[in-house]
């Protein structure tokens, strides 16, 4: 009998849920990267379950820790501007391309800004994606000012009357104050033309409790409005995103599940919770 059906049987009073089983449940939740604090909360609530339908009750507990904010894309009046931020190596550039392809498929026009002027070949990486999916990329010089690239792209999007503009940014560790200030500058400069409607933080599903810190600090600096949870195709379950939703109240909006451009989908709370429990 699997752990969860055992748990459910216990709630129905047909089976004992021993101390060892509780320990095992705690272990499962910890292994999903929920973190010790959220795990404790969930366990405390689980102990109180008396409902007939225990399966529903347990997923209800987990679902209730999710953010109640709207998960649909925030749209602008003319051009919707989306800025994609995150620490190094989470998959920002790939996510930008996937998001652009997704938008293009829905029949809207989109421009991408190659704002990662720091990492070697990041601009070329986005350009390669751009030609693959048929989306225009505005790029500047490597090691140039990312704010100026973003500004040029904003002007270009306005010129083309494009429905969407997606701005890629260089990866930065959240504890580097100067780099966070650079990001704030990009935002300021773009907002001279259009308001930024969405600031999406890319979180790698393999990240542990450090993800919480990332979410807090990026939100403080550039008002994150949503999360893209990447690399969910691996063995990690991305439980830290639940901890982020619970503590920082930022909704997950998209998930990345592979290397191909189509491995990208809107976030489905039910599937995600089931994945955590699997």
């Amino acid at each position: 009998m699997s752990l969860f059906s055992k748990f459910i049987a216990k709630v129905r009073g047909t089976n004992d849920f021993s101390a060892a089983d509780w320990h095992e449940l705690e272990e499962e939740l910890l292994l999903s990267d929920l973190g010790p604090t959220l795990t404790k909360t969930v366990l405390e609530q689980a102990r109180k379950i008396k409902s007939e339908n225990a399966n529903e009750a347990l997923s209800h507990i987990l679902t209730s820790t999710l953010s109640s904010k709207d998960r649909s894309m925030l749209l602008g009046e003319t051009t919707t501007v989306i800025m994609v931020v995150g620490v190094n190596g989470t998959g920002k550039t790939t996510s930008v391309a996937k998001l652009a392809a997704n938008i293009k498929k829905s029949g809207k026009s989109v421009v991408m800004a190659a704002g990662d002027t720091f990492r070697a070949a990041a601009v070329e990486q986005l350009q390669t994606w751009g030609s693959q999916i048929g989306v225009e990329v505005v790029a500047g010089k490597t090691n140039g000012d990312p704010a100026s690239v973003a500004f040029d792209a904003t002007k270009r999007a306005k010129e083309l009357n494009s429905d969407f503009l997606i701005i890629d940014t260089a990866g930065r560790l959240h504890n580097k104050n100067d780099l966070m200030a650079e990001l704030e500058k990009v935002k300021r400069v773009v907002e001279k033309v259009f308001p930024i409607n969405e600031t999406l933080l890319v979180i790698d599903a393999t990240t542990g409790q450090n993800g919480l810190q990332q979410a807090k600090i990026f939100t403080e600096a550039v008002q994150t409005t949503g999360i893209i949870l990447t690399k969910l195709d691996g063995s990690a379950r991305g439980g830290v995103a639940l901890a982020i939703e619970n503590e920082v109240d930022i909704p997950i909006k998209w998930i990345g599940t592979g290397e191909s451009v189509n491995d990208f989908a809107p976030f489905e709370p039910t599937n995600y919770i089931q994945g955590l429990l699997s």
Binding site: L31, T206, G208, G239
Partner: peptide, 15 residues
């Protein structure tokens, strides 16, 4: 390996 990796460190490094 990324120093920020979480509990998946076990499965990944073992794999």
């Amino acid at each position: 390996v990324d120093a920020m990796i979480g509990q998946d460190a076990v499965r990944t490094s073992q794999a």
